[in-house]
């Protein structure tokens, strides 16, 4: 695991009350490893420990037991943090700043030069579709716009590891699809992405591997294709089959045939196609 970007060993977090008494076991003995260039999904219902895991990886909270390494370093190490981008589960931003000012401020926290900040801000704001609103205060943004800005700030340092907590939360289907496209683009560029979500379709679309958490425990870990594969069934897709062909297949399959129906477009694909058509008309 020499090229592990993220590695945890028996990572455990028990939240305590003011007096230090154990209260909530949020994460128990998590051991995972995320390879460089991988898109890794953390799945689980609410309260399963996804956000706690991310906070531990960012050094925002300290583990009760176990170890975590990010880019081979302690999560609290400034050198590691300089190479990590993070989008929280909601866009916690400064309402009185504009998008430009927000990115400039975050860029300065990373020690970037003014020219670099300007160049990256231009590119990122175009990428997340906020070019027109860059001079408006964040307090005037819709939730989706703030989410897009949150994404831009997570990428201002051109990170090696991007941690995205519910990245599509608050976004419309188009925005969600764009975020997924962005994640795939990051993957193509060799960036490692750690994605936390409970929207299974999002995860399925972009992740190479996933870890499923439940009540703080790791219950499944593996490649998406392998986990979802069902070798007891077979799908055959045919382009405009003739009735004879259909009848022949039915006859050949016999009682093992479970069903035949024309394929359906996914709602997301359908929605995107409709919107694209309307945009083209305008």
């Amino acid at each position: 695991m020499a090229d592990s970007v993220v590695r945890t060993e028996g990572l455990t977090k028990v939240y305590t009350d003011f007096w230090g008494r154990p209260r909530v076991p949020a994460l128990q003995g998590l051991s995972i490893s995320v390879a460089r260039g991988e898109v890794f999904g953390l799945l689980g219902p609410n309260g399963s420990g996804k956000t706690t895991t991310i906070k531990l990886l960012l050094g925002l909270i300290r583990p009760t037991a176990g170890d975590a390494f990010v880019l081979g370093r302690d999560p609290g190490d400034a050198a590691a943090r300089a190479r990590v981008g993070y989008l929280p589960e909601e866009s916690y931003l400064w309402r009185f700043l504009t998008a430009d000012e927000t990115l400039a401020f975050i860029g300065r926290l990373f020690g970037l030069s003014a020219a670099t900040i300007r160049e990256r801000s231009d590119r990122l704001l175009a990428q997340v579709g906020l070019e027109q609103a860059r001079g408006r205060k964040v307090g005037e943004y819709s939730k989706g716009m703030a989410r897009r800005l949150g994404l831009a700030q997570a990428l201002i340092n051109e990170p090696e590891l991007v941690i995205l907590d519910e990245p599509t939360s608050g976004l419309d289907p188009i925005g969600s699809a764009e975020v997924k496209d962005l994640i795939l683009a990051l993957k193509r560029a060799g960036t490692t992405v750690l994605l936390s979500s409970h929207l299974l379709a999002d995860v399925e679309d972009v992740c190479d591997r996933i870890a499923i958490l439940h009540r703080g425990r790791l219950v499944e870990l593996g490649r998406v294709q392998e986990l979802l594969a069902d070798d007891r069934r077979l799908c055959i897709e045919l382009a405009a089959p003739s009735p004879d062909t259909v009848a022949a297949i039915k006859a050949a399959a016999g009682p093992s045939l479970l069903g035949m129906a024309p394929p359906r477009e996914r709602l997301e694909q359908h929605f995107r196609r409709i919107v694209a058509r309307e945009e083209a008309v305008r």
Binding site: L58, G59, L60, A78, A79, R81, A82, V84, Y86, P88, E90, S91, Y92, L93, W94, I106, L109, F110, G111, G150, Q153
Partner: peptide, 14 residues
Amino acid sequence: EQRIVLTAFPKPLP
């Protein structure tokens, strides 16, 4: 309280 530190504290500034 508004959890803005979740955006700020993961940055390299101690």
